[in-house]
Structure formats: C-alpha cells, structure tokens
Design a protein around this nucleic acid. Structure first.
Length: 736
DNA sequence: AATGCAAAATTTTTT
DNA sequence: ATTTTGCATT
C-alpha cells in the first residue's frame, strides 16, 4: 500500500508523468493540490530527485503554506529545501541576491499601490501633467499593463510614436521608473519584470537557477500574465520539466493582466506536452456541480471538459429574493444562526461571497447585531492603514536610506514643525546635488535659507541615525518599541481617546505581535526580512482555519477555498455581473464574470444559497436591478424557491419594461419566481395617514394607478413630499 | 502650519 | 452615502 493508491487513474497519470512539459487541466475540486503534493513526493522518493531541485509556485502565501505543510506530511525529510513560494516572493528572493547587476541596492524597498500613487503624483507635478485629463490611476494602470507585457519605458515610447497622449504616458513611465530607481524601490510588477531582465542579461545567474530548478510546478496557471509566463519559460527552458496546473474556467484575473492564452496555448508553445484532465470532483454535491456546469456552458472558447462526481445529489440550491440589501443580510444572518443552532453547521463552515467589497458592510452590521463571530477578508489591507504605514515607514527609513517616500511620510509625523515649505527646500537641494532626500536632511546645515527648521530636521536625522546604529544589537521588536516610545505615537492616540484611536492602538498592538511572530518563526530574522514579508502579504493569507467564525469575502478572494455552506449574495444584473461588463462592448468581459460565478458556485460543498435584492443603495442612490442572468442559467429543477407573501412583489413600471425585454431575450427557461404578479388593492387611500420605515408618518395626497403598480404621493411630517411605488414603500395605514 | 469646510470621487475584482 | 481631497482661513 503506497500513498499513491488513494489517487484516481488520471491523478496518478499526472503524478507519474514527471519529465517534460505537463499541462494538468484541473477542474474545481478535482484534487489538484493533492496531485501537486503527491507529485513532489513522487519526484523525491521514487525518482530520487534532490528536493533542492524542485520549485513550486503559487499565487498566495496561504496556498504556498498549505502546500508546504502537505508536502511535509508526505515526504520524510528534505521537504524544507523545496522552494515553495509565490511569484512575487520568489522574485524578491532572487533579486535580493543579484539585483546589483541591475544597478539597485540589495536592500531595495517594495512599493505598494499607495506608494505608487504618491510617486505618480510627484511625477505628474514635475512633468506638469494635468491630472484632470491624465488621472494618476489611469497612468499607473497603463504602466502596469505595459510591465505585464514586459514592455519597458523605452520600448513603450517607440511603440506609441505619433500618438500624442500615449507619448505623454511614455514620458510619465520613464520618469516614474527613474524615481523608483533613485528611491531604490520596486513596485509589484517590477519584481517580475526585473527578474526576467536579470535572467536575460546575466547568463551566469540564469544558469545557476536553471540548474537549481530542474523541476518546476506552477499552480493557478490560468492567472499568470505574460511576464510571469516568460519568467517560468526562461527558467524551464533548459530542462523543460515544467508542470502547470490550472483551469481555464477559473481564470478571473484578466483585469490584472492574466493572459488566458498562456493556458489555452500551452500545447502550442510546448508541443511535446502531456495534457491530463482531472474532471472528477470530490468537493461538491451533484446538484451544485450541475448548476456550475450549466452556467459555465454559456461561455465560448473554453477547453472542453465536464465535471462529474460520485457524491450524492444533495440539497437543492436555495434562491431567495428580497426587497433590499438589509433584508438580504438579515435572512443570511438568521439562516446561519439557525443552522448553527440546529447543529447542522459550525460558523466556520459558512461563507458569504459577494462581488464587491462594499457589500460587506451590510452584513457586518447584521452580524454584530446577531452576535455572530465573523471575519471579513479584504477591503482595506491591514498594512495599508495609516498608523501601520507610518510605523512601517520608520522601519523602512532605517532599512533603506534611499527610500525618500518613507522619509517624507514620517519626517513630520508626529508633528515636528517641519512643513511643506521646508520639505520642498530640502527636496530641491537633493535634486540639485543629486542626492537622496534623506542625505540632504543629513547635511541640512548646507541648505541655504532653511532657517530654524534646520535644527528640527537635525533632531529627526539624529533620531533615525541612533536607531540605525542600534539595529546591530536590537531585535526588530525592540526597535519598533523604541520608535513608538520616542515618537509618542501611541501616547498621542491614547490622548485622543475616541473609538477610532482605540482601534488604531489595537492595530499597532497587532503589528507588534506580527513582528514578534516573525522573529520567533524565522531562522535569521532581520529588518529587511520582516519588511519584505509585510510587503507581499495578501489578505487571504491571514485567514486562520482553526478559529470558528463566518467568513465574508469577494468572489475573487474565495478562489481556491471551499466551504460546506456558501451564500452568493447580490445576484443582480449590474452588481454581478457588474454594470461595467454588461455595458461593455467586449463580450469576453461578461465571460470573465461568468467564470467568477462558476468559481463562486463551486466553492460550496453541500449547501448553496443564492440571494438578491430588488432594491439596493449604491453610492447614495437607490438602484432597481433585475435578477442576475447567471441565476437564469441554472435550470429551475436544481433550485428551491421559498415563496412567501412578501417575496413576490411588484416591480416599478420602469423596471418592468427592462425585465420583459430580458425575459424575451433569454432563451433559457425562466423559473416562475421571476414573473410579476398584478397588484392587489391598497390598504389606504387619499387622505389617510400612513407610516414609512424611514420617512415616518405622513398623509397620502395622491395615488396614481399605473399598469402594474400604484404611484403614491405622501406628504411626510418631517421628510417632506415623496413619490413612491406602493409595492416598494411598504406603507402602513395608521389608525387615528 | 494646522484646522475646517466644501467639492469631488468612489465601487469590480488584487499579487 | 461615505470618504477622501483640495482649498481657504486663522
């Protein structure tokens, strides 16, 4: 009996095919992680490959950690020398060693999105770019896109010759890159780009890594972009033992540069490739899988495959429609509470998935009310919070004196009386003398017209220098404590003593415990090492498995996870699929949304609930959305609809036209639940006093009968005169 | 230089 | 609706 006996035929095939290029098309829940880990074990134990020669690349640290853990469980010893990490941390590791070849220092800083924006603002100001016409965000995304395709500033400029506005972007790109370099910093995209550059220009380095990584495995291959593909190709080009695992139906990161043709054309690029399809699903019930299959079938240009399972049919998929987002959240909250009470599920069996982060708030409110433990993944990254960024900027300043951005961030935090005018003078001096901002601070007495501020800057510089000298004999934790103590950062917050300040202090405490954890769990902890780890964390990484709480996250974050009981909330056209993709004239965009839906459905093991609201507040405006087209793609035989009096209600007239049109266009069978019932008579008339949930009481001044609904005008006592549709307003007559 | 208010942007998804 | 940003004031 060997560990491989538990694998099915296809899985075994994938595990045993160790040499040459291999493409594993692994459907959702088909045990791809199992295959990858067993493959590693097989390479080491049966093929006698040195663990040192194996590399596995994933997208998130969480996935990497899981894989490492599982490999450890399978392989007797040596597992620790397998290189398991994400694209980004792989590149950082390589660059830390060789980046001097590209003219950077080894202790380079990694800039996050916020930092990029700050740099871009400076660039625009410097180049006199009108940011009303060229938005920073737009410029950054253009640059990011270029980097994804491995197009450098110079080539970009050549490519866009003759196009005035793109030439401007080229100029920005060049200046942006120049500034990153003088700050000794790389952005996320640079990590990949620079590594490819390093390999292209330094044969000895490339050769070293090619010899080292004789066996390369890439997970979530459908989400790789061109730069990542190049990186992998270059590394694998010598031994060609490249095994990629992916599912084209789960490609959901096109907006981030993921190139789906990497997976679709793998066999063309590697024509000797072995292709293995894993189609047996071990995760979900038959019903859930059928639903997923029906949805994804509507996409064109996908690799042909069909998931099947030996699992039982299971419960039907619940579908519930509500008046608004509050009722939707209330229902889900109550449903979870009830299922936990009955013992059917634990809190951590349940996940709520939604399209946009903004949707999480309504749920959060209801969870707090219901006293249910929950965890929201995503939204504002922990490390993107002000207080955390401030304190990290101190660490970065100590670590990398060229990181002007960090220095400028904290030079006057807490307030030291160093204002914008002073900073500008130092900046000008630094540029004139071609030195870094911090170095200019060090020689502040040489700067003319600096005045009294010079002494203040000197104090700041001394503070940093002292810390830097202490770096040798103090731990990162001790340094951090000293920063907090000396700057009085926490003391100031304590003085504020409001809710926000308390939350910030808690965040700072969390940061300290993260530093402690880092120093305890790392062999050779260092300041650079900690900063690096911090720069590359994703929110999903911190999702602990042992604690018992409901998880809330976007559909994107949910990729790769599974839960017994899943809720897909906000299933409305305009929300999911998003408004952007519906109105776009690129039909592949809606296909990406559909893949996202497929990902969502296949997260569920046993029970799936789809919910939507007829009415939803978006950016302060009430929207009336029709039911998501994806729901209509699920045959009604798989769906359970609870019909209650409240659930079937009138749509306003304006929506009816749209819905009718939609019904007309839709080829797929439309379940009864979407049909609209004719209104009953109203319980109130003109002159009656009525009560509204939000606006309070008022007097009905007019009722206009439309085709399908009544438009009621009410003069509220406090809220003024409002016109509303009877079915939505839920007005109650007040007896006098 | 710090505070306070009005205007503008935000929301599709993130390593 | 809420949050961030810019501008003007003290």
């Amino acid at each position: 009996m060997s560990i491989y006996d538990t694998l099915n035929t296809k899985q075994k095939e994938a595990v045993f095919q160790t040499d040459g290029p291999v493409l594993i098309l692994a459907g959702a829940g088909s045990g791809k992680t199992r295959v990858l880990t067993h493959r590693v074990a097989y390479l080491i134990e049966e093929k006698g490959i040195n663990p040192w020669n194996i590399m596995a690349i994933t997208f998130t640290n969480k996935a990497a950690g899981e894989m490492r853990e599982r490999v450890d469980g399978l392989v007797g010893f040596g597992a620790e020398s397998i290189w398991v990490s994400t694209f980004h941390s792989t590149c950082v590791r390589i660059l830390r060693r060789y980046i001097d070849r590209l003219g950077y220092d080894h202790n380079f800083t990694i800039y996050d999105t916020d930092d990029q924006k700050t740099i871009m603002k400076e660039v625009c100001k410097y180049l006199d770019i009108d940011t009303k016409v060229y938005k920073e965000k737009m410029l950054l995304s253009a640059i990011s896109k270029a980097k994804d395709e491995l197009i450098g500033p110079i080539q970009y400029r050549l490519n866009v010759q003759g196009d005035y506005s793109k030439e401007k972007i080229a100029k920005v790109y060049e200046e942006y890159q120049k500034r990153l370099k003088s700050n000794n910093a790389l952005d996320f995209d640079d990590l990949i780009v620079k590594t490819v550059e390093l390999f292209r220009d330094n044969e000895d380095v490339l050769d070293y890594y090619q010899e080292r990584f004789k066996y390369i495995m890439v997970d979530e291959y459908q989400d790789t972009n061109t730069a990542q593909f190049q990186l992998i190709s270059i590394l694998a080009s010598k031994y060609r033992n490249l095994c990629v695992v992916g599912d084209d139906d789960q490609s959901i990161y096109k907006f981030r540069g993921a190139n789906i043709s990497n997976i679709l054309d793998f066999e063309k690029v590697y024509n000797e490739a072995t292709v293995i399809k894993l189609e047996q699903n071990y995760r979900s019930t038959q019903t859930i899988l059928d639903a997923a299959n029906h949805v994804i079938q509507n996409n064109f240009g996908r690799k042909d495959k069909r998931l099947w399972t030996e699992n039982e049919e299971g419960e039907k998929i619940a579908y519930r429609q509500f008046q608004n987002a509050y009722e939707e959240a209330e229902y889900i909250t109550e449903d979870i509470a009830q299922k936990v009470r009955s013992g059917a599920y634990e809190y951590n069996d349940c996940a709520i998935l939604y399209r946009t982060n903004a949707q999480s708030r309504t749920f959060e409110e209801k969870f707090i009310l219901a006293n249910i433990p929950y965890k929201i993944v995503g939204g504002i990254n922990f490390y993107a919070r002000k207080e955390i960024k401030d304190l990290l900027a101190y660490l970065k300043t100590i670590d990398n004196a060229k990181d002007d951005l960090s220095v400028k961030r904290i030079i006057n935090v807490p307030k030291r009386g160093i204002g914008a005018a002073t900073i500008a003078k130092v900046q000008d001096f630094a540029i004139a003398h071609e030195m870094s901002f911090y170095d200019a601070c060090r020689v502040v007495e040489d700067i003319p017209s600096i005045g009294k501020s010079g002494a203040k800057i000197k104090l700041f510089v001394n503070f940093i220098q002292v810390l830097r000298s202490k770096l040798e004999f103090l731990s990162v934790t001790e340094i951090m404590n000293e920063i907090i103590e000396e700057t009085g950062y926490v003391r100031d917050l304590e003085a504020e003593n409001d809710e926000e300040a308390i939350a910030r202090i808690q965040n700072i405490d969390e940061l300290i415990s993260k530093i402690v954890t880092y120093e305890e769990s790392t062999d050779e902890p260092s300041l650079s090492g900690f900063l690096e780890e911090v720069a590359l964390v994703a929110d999903i990484d911190s999702l602990a498995e042992d604690s018992n709480h409901v998880v809330l996250m976007t559909l994107h974050s949910a990729k790769g996870l599974e839960f017994p009981n899943v809720y897909l909330a906000g299933m409305e056209d305009g929300i999911f699929p998003s408004y952007m993709t519906i109105t776009s004239d690129d039909p592949t965009e809606i296909e990406e949304e559909r893949r996202l839906c497929y990902v969502g459905i296949t997260r569920a093991r046993q029970h799936l609930t789809l919910t939507c609201a007829k009415q939803r507040m978006i950016r302060g405006e009430t929207q009336y959305n029709k039911v998501s087209r994806f729901i209509k793609e699920i045959p009604s035989s798989f769906v359970d609809l609870e019909v209650t009096e409240d659930k079937i209600q009138e749509m306003p007239k304006s929506m009816l036209y749209q819905q009718a049109r939609n019904t007309f266009q839709s080829k797929v069978f439309e379940p009864k639940m979407f049909q609209v019932k004719k209104a009953e008579s109203l319980t109130y008339g003109i002159g009656d006093t009525v009560k509204h949930i939000k606006f309070g009481t008022g007097v009905v001044t007019a009722i206009v009968e439309g085709g399908k609904d009544y438009e009621v005008t009410v003069a509220f006592n406090t809220a003024g005169v409002k016109k509303m549709f009877a079915s939505f307003a839920k007005l109650k007559k007040v007896e006098q």
